[in-house]
């Protein structure tokens, strides 16, 4: 019966947190992605999840957005348990969050303007004139009002991501999830994105969750950082605290050294044995 009784540590979380993840476990096949992880994302702040590729950072965003189901644990967003929402409410809930995909995920059969107008047209009954003003305002905010007639394949990677950002804020969400916003960007677009994420967050009163492994950019704007590895949180704190962490692992990650607690070599059998076997079939 105690299943129904909220455990104190489960449901009484920080008053100020918009998203609280409790005892989350998730695995893909035999690979454990999360092992009993708990995280809090504070309202109005930029919280970053960092860690090497393949640690399930994107998976975490999909879990928060309700696209994947955890094997165990709860995710509360603004007091609602995402994975117990019926389909209809889940879709209602998703209107209140924006997500920026790594690829931008722009609809390739529409131009920039229609892409930004897409959520407005789908979810509101606003007249076209008002949609136009809203779209132009969102595009102005990301600096791409002049590119409104371009098709997605005419945009550079950085521009596509900014358009996707304009689309993500079209419905004035309470929270934006950024999936690797800086990956593969040239220094200028990177700077633009860093500035945009920071300024949108304060101007619109958003809560932002950034998943990234770009150490410098992320720690420049994040208020709080979680470092994930091997399904666990191995460090958390403000960017300064993380930088000064005594953990050898975190130091290796933050400074990007080739060898350390994470070895340069992927686990393999003995080198000499392997070489001597080279002529035989095995």
């Amino acid at each position: 019966m105690d299943y129904f009784l909220p455990r104190m540590d489960t449901f009484v979380s920080n008053q100020n947190s918009l998203v609280s993840v409790r005892d989350l476990s998730f695995s893909r096949g035999t690979k454990i992605i999360f092992d009993n992880v708990s995280l809090d994302f504070e309202r109005g702040k930029i919280t970053a999840i960092m860690g090497p590729s393949g640690t399930g950072k994107t998976t975490l965003l999909k879990l928060i957005g309700g696209q994947l189901h955890p094997a165990q644990g709860t995710i509360l967003v603004d007091g609602e348990n995402v994975h117990q929402l019926p389909r209809k409410q889940l879709f209602q809930f998703r209107k209140r969050i924006g997500m920026l995909f790594q690829s931008g995920a722009l609809l390739t059969d529409m131009n920039v303007y229609d892409n930004v107008a897409f959520p407005l047209r789908e979810h509101t009954h606003l007249p076209e004139s008002m949609i136009r003003s809203l779209v132009l305002m969102k595009l102005q905010a990301v600096g791409l009002r002049g590119a409104k007639d371009f098709m997605p394949n005419e945009l550079s990677g950085g521009m596509a991501r900014r358009v996707a950002l304009a689309r993500a804020i079209a419905l004035d969400p309470m929270m934006i999830l950024y999936d690797e916003p800086f990956t593969g960007q040239d220094p200028i677009s990177m700077g633009v994105l860093v500035h945009l994420i920071k300024s949108l967050n304060s101007a619109l009163g958003l809560t932002s969750i950034i998943v990234s492994h770009d150490v410098h950019e992320t720690s420049a704007i994040a208020d709080y950082i979680y470092v994930l590895a091997d399904g666990k949180i191995i460090g958390q704190g403000t960017p300064d605290a993380i930088r000064q962490s005594s953990s050898a692992w975190i130091q290796q990650f933050m400074t990007g050294t080739a060898d350390g607690p994470v070895h340069f070599h992927y686990p393999a059998k003995d080198y000499l044995d392997d070489l001597l076997l080279s002529g035989k079939r095995y």
Binding site: K95, M99, F101, Q102, L107, E122, H123
Partner: peptide, 16 residues
């Protein structure tokens, strides 16, 4: 559309 995350993106925009 699936490979370029457009379907996933649509779901996250609350469009089925």
């Amino acid at each position: 559309m699936k490979a370029t995350e457009q379907l996933s993106g649509m779901e996250m925009m609350a469009v089925d």
